[in-house]
């Protein structure tokens, strides 16, 4: 049996809904990780389908904002997260949006940090508190948040992926899953790697030194 008994008797969470509350918190937490845990100045949530429908009734709004501030699913401050965000000077907005052919519980998040950097992502809450991040900074992704993840946007050139994996190996970071996609031959490609171990910042720094690399995003595990 490969399902943990604590996934059955869990998560330990603030109610009322594993998909609309705990899942929403995880999506918020994903943005917290993607933006490198920086203080956020402004965030816009674009809510699709059932997420927009039961927004405040399930505390989805509070859970998203709580996650964005780094809170866990069991953090009692989730209830007051909108107030806490206000006190921290975070500008928050929610609006309904049709995001197209996505899971019914999906939200697009655009966040700007106090230092002026903007990040975007689209995440779906797929049931029982499990989530899937399907887009990061405009590029397709697929992350459940159960592993530390590195997302590299680069030019589709021979040997780039091998460089990435050898740098990871150098820092003794074991790869769990790896996926790669490109717009077309020789254009922008994205490599996404889930790992067993925390990915040191030096991996990002070394990669950013290389030719053909556009952007490196490290995402700590958030689920």
């Amino acid at each position: 049996m490969n399902i943990s008994m604590f996934d059955i008797l869990g998560p330990v969470m603030i109610g009322p809904s594993s998909s609309h509350t705990a899942g929403a918190q995880r999506i918020g937490k994903a943005m917290y990780m993607i933006s490198g845990k920086e203080e956020i100045a402004k965030v816009d949530f674009y809510l699709h389908g059932s997420f927009s429908h039961t927004l405040s009734g399930h505390g989805t709004d509070r859970a998203l904002v709580a996650g964005l501030m780094g809170m866990d699913a069991s953090d009692a401050r989730i209830r007051n997260s909108l107030q806490i965000a206000k006190e921290r000077g975070i500008e928050v907005s929610f609006q309904p949006e049709d995001l197209g052919d996505v899971h019914p519980n999906t939200v697009k998040v655009i966040a700007t940090t106090k230092s002026g950097k903007t990040y975007s992502m689209i995440g779906s809450s797929v049931g029982g508190g499990e989530v899937e991040i399907v887009e990061i900074n405009g590029t397709k992704a697929k992350s459940s948040g159960k592993f530390p993840t590195i997302i590299v946007t680069h030019i589709d050139r021979l040997g780039v992926i091998s460089k990435i994996s050898s740098i990871l190996a150098h820092y003794e970071v074991n790869i769990v899953t790896m996926s790669n996609s490109r717009e077309k031959k020789g254009s922008t490609a994205t490599t996404m790697i889930e790992t067993d171990h925390e990915i040191p910042l030096s991996v990002k720094e070394e990669l950013e030194e290389l030719d053909y690399i556009h952007q490196v995003v490290l995402v700590e595990k958030f689920a």
Partner: peptide, 21 residues
């Protein structure tokens, strides 16, 4: 009811059914 009030619960196996077990 604690669940519906945004209180702390253990999903078992889900939040909606968390009182039965």
């Amino acid at each position: 009811e604690v669940n519906a009030s945004m209180g702390l619960i253990v999903a078992a196996p889900t939040a909606g059914a968390c009182g039965i077990l």
